[in-house]
Design a protein around this nucleic acid. Structure first.
Ligand code: SF4
Ligand code: SF4
Lengths: 155, 155
DNA sequence: AACATTTAATACTAAAGAGTACGAAATACG
DNA sequence: CGTATTTCGTACTCTTTAGTATTAAATGTT
């Protein structure tokens, strides 16, 4: 059980990748998928969601691709998560009970809502720009695994 | 995408239910499932995990059932989550990258690890006793839905 | 106009999670 | 001993998520 779905993680990674590029031209999904070591076709579906949500724009044909629709400083982590996974993470409960609230709380209410609010605050105030800056500053990884295809194991 | 699996939520609910009972005798799974409005068979599987993990003890035969193996004050929320869902929630990342750490961080590292640690701390220090006390004090709900079977809808 | 490139859209397959069913084993009780 | 009760263990089905494949639509280049 994870906090974010795979689709959502891929979307965030792709967005950070785009934001970390020097200039914002259209980048082919193929390039992004290759750099992040994600299945091209699967990433295509995820990025379709983000374009439909107005977070990215796409352009078909040669030299086409995708790009951020807005400056990276005005796209929050919460925007991307909300578009792909929905706001469930920020609104639902640790114990997953539907329609929770102060009027009808379960025993873990106080501590969880406090955490949940903090999570939302963090995601809402963390921008793609920040993430991308940190990524290039720290020479930090984005993809799940460094490609190890050079070291083909013997067996 | 949720933080805890359904199985885990059911396990926590059942544990709180047991802990909130005045005395600790064996309670049949059927009773627990009925009170919490959970499928009996499914809950059986979940509670098997908890007995194998040493958190509950079971007894077969008439008047058998399950009970907490330890006093509710020495069972933490983290114990139950760890037994059912594993420690993934506390160790893995928001972005789900495997093998993360200070040596090889992704851009969201700092803020996420801070949150993750807080989650772990909360779960580790919250005991069943506290949850059960709160549950009975506040007359708080445990089950997902109040049973509405009395009001059978016309259509 | 023909062609190559690249996203859009849909459909299909695989894997995991959630839930159901049923028989076996243990135990109390008559 | 026989039977009812209750957990244990396995196997099966259904649903959701993840991943793959294929075709269609758009657009630049020759
Ligand atoms: S802990 Fe609070 S937010 Fe979560 S289900 Fe219970 S009442 Fe709702
Ligand atoms: S945010 Fe930190 S803990 Fe999470 S994957 Fe990145 S490096 Fe690991």
């Amino acid at each position: 059980m994870t906090v974010l779905s795979k689709s959502c993680i891929y979307g965030v990674q792709a967005a950070i990748y785009l934001a970390s590029l020097p200039k914002s031209e259209y980048v082919s999904i193929q390039e992004v998928a290759g750099k992040l070591n994600i299945s091209f076709h699967f990433l295509t579906k995820v990025l379709q969601i983000l374009t439909q949500a107005g977070i990215m724009i796409s352009y078909r044909g040669p030299n086409g691709g995708i790009a951020l629709a807005r400056p990276s400083s005005s796209v929050s982590l919460a925007d991307i998560i909300g578009a792909i996974d929905g706001t469930e993470v920020f609104t639902e409960c640790l114990l997953g009970l539907p329609g929770c609230g102060h009027a009808d709380p379960c025993p873990a209410h106080e501590q969880w809502t406090s955490m949940r609010n903090r999570l939302y605050h963090i995601c809402k105030t963390t921008t793609l720009e920040e993430l991308a800056t940190k990524a290039s500053e720290l020479n930090v990884r984005l993809a799940a695994h460094p490609l190890v295809q050079h070291f083909t194991p013997k067996e």
